[in-house]
Design a protein around this nucleic acid. Sequence first.
DNA 1: CGCTCATAAT
Length: 764
Amino acid sequence: MASLPSVAVTGVTQKLDLEYRKFSQHYSISTDKNTNISYQRSYTSKPSEKNIDPKSLDYREALSILKESSVVESAVYVPILQECIDNYSVSEAQMIHTHVIKTGYHEDMFLMTFLINVYTKCGAMDFARGVFDKLSKKNVVTWTALITGYVRNSEPELAIRVFLELLESGAYPTNYTLGAVVSACSSLYLVGMGKQIHGYIVKYNIESDTSTGNAICSLYSKCRRFDLAVKAFRRIPEKNVISWTTMISACGDNGDAMLGLKIFVEMLLDGVEPNEFTLTSVLSLCCVMQALEFGEQVHSLSIKFGCVSNLPVKNSIMYLYLRSGKTDEAQKLFSAMETISLVTWNAMIAGYAQMMENEKNVLKAQHSGTDALNIFLKLNRSSLKPDLFTFSSILTVCSSLVAIEQGEQIHAQTIKTGFLSDIVVGSALVNMYNKCGSIEKATRAFVEMPTRTLISWTSMITGYAQHGRSAQALQLFEDMRLAGERPNKITFVGVFSACSHAGMVDQAMRYFKMMKKEYRIKPVVDHFACLVDMFVRLGRLQDAFDFIEKMEFEPNEFIWSILIAGCRSHGNMDLGFYAAERLLELKPKDFETYVLLLSMYLSAGRWKDVSKVRKLMKDENLGKVTDWSSISIKDKVHSFRPDDRSQSHSTEIYKLLDNLLDKAKSLGYASLKSLEMADEEETDKTFSSAIHHSEKLAVAFGLLNMTSGASVRVLKSSSMCRDCHSLIMYISVLTGREIVIRDSKRLHQFNNGHCSCGDFGSLL
DNA sequence: CGCTCATAAT
């Protein structure tokens, strides 16, 4: 992004002050928006001619006048030029332009300004500039038209440059000019320069102009100076619908949706009628707030104010229903829409993607994911083409479903359509490959990104850490620092997780200090979880416990679980029982926490504690454990429950599993099920009494149905148990295949008898 | 006079 040198910025203010004396003498700012525009007086006309009011002249009439006579009043051009704007027709504008020159009106200030405006509105800035440069005399409106043109055509730097030229020329900026320049500052995030212009505007009382006030409010909002945006808004004496809408959407952009809704109510009480812009903004706030009932009221208002047929409004209403779980309602609206845009498709895809992310029930989440994929396929069959929003949403879906084949297809599509170079799409790709357990492809996608962002660095560091490649994770972190990118707290979660994996205590502590001192990032509970995990993996349980005791957080359910799992696998049961007591005080919410506690107490034969845990489970009213696994092959997602026999291939699946089990036993695999299986109570029956947990079935299905040698990638809803973990390691040896299982807690990449998770930690 | 300010999906 180009930014102006600070010299230029200070230059502006000096210049502005200098110009003010002249300015204040010659201009008064009119806030009267209802003045009827009269063209007659301002047109140059030949003395012999009668003045024509262009407003009473339509396009056809004007055109016929133009054809019949070579000598016309300049007003005749107006409806024709208006038509050029409406048709976005540069060529027609050029024809009129030539005509204007022939008839000698090329010095008519109004007409030429209008022509500049026509060209800018048709996207032909070169022509607009050409007209401007040829003018022997220019006034501030001419200048402003050009500046506005650059702003409109996404050339804010040029807009500001022309503004500086304007000051140089001795012309006086008006509220119109300043509004356009403020808007140019907004798109360049030049809050400093914007502030200086604001100061000027305040000083000379142009601020009371509604439009200027709106522009300033918008500037501060875009530059993330929300407090200043609110102040600017409050200072607008006569707020119009744009003022309110600007402020409401500013609330959304700056993360205060509630305030936005309050301001909307204030607006209604003020008697200002919302329009389609307002309603779309408000509906998006309702999404953020998950305020369905309020949203339904807004839906009614949309009908009342006649905006319900407006496409953005419809899209927003549909998205709101989708995000609120009213999928039927959303689908109904979707299929009832006679015209839809790409945003409609994207809203549907993003809606299902979001539902998938938020859905605790893994089966439902999976359904949402496949719904999103199906909509994406439909979009591809339609006449519209996916864009960066589509790609980033759908790649998230692929990553959540561990659908690498679909992801690769979409990767190819981003290359073809040129969206690969987009940083959001690039990060989404890196994330997708990481979540699918393909560190090689993630690395390639990362390296091929034209520029890296905080998100992509972090995603890649975390990816290395999750794949057990600690050294590479830390190397990348150092590269990131060298590149001058500032890590955030999530980056450090990746760093600590890498240290934890490799048992690098000293490194971890050094980075922990660095995070606090150098980057002023407050540790969060996830950081402590990684560090506790690190001590546990090393078997340093007492250190882990001491660390928990002295950290500046109340240990949560997750942290205690890590310690307890460690105590189990390292045989320090006293500490385990103590930690379990403390954990129970927290009344855990996660089903898997209870499974861990139960299996610990069961294996120790502590029946009293078993029933205590059971009672708490009933009190907390937890749902059933959901052991689900899925595998995505081609464009289909196949799901499995424990001991599932619903698949048509199930006979083959079980045959293969039995075969593999026998071979594994001969290599030394021993079932770890004996103790856990002793429990037959209903609550955890699905978990413990199953002969085959779901991931085994999914893996077997993959082995049977994928091209030989291809990696098998499975998504599992809960954590893997130690038994399955052990068996899959043998299967990876026996089949010579890479097997990736992403469970609810971590990624397991099995290769030739090894797993990237390090084979220990909080396995149940 | 002519020239401005605001919207939905990652």
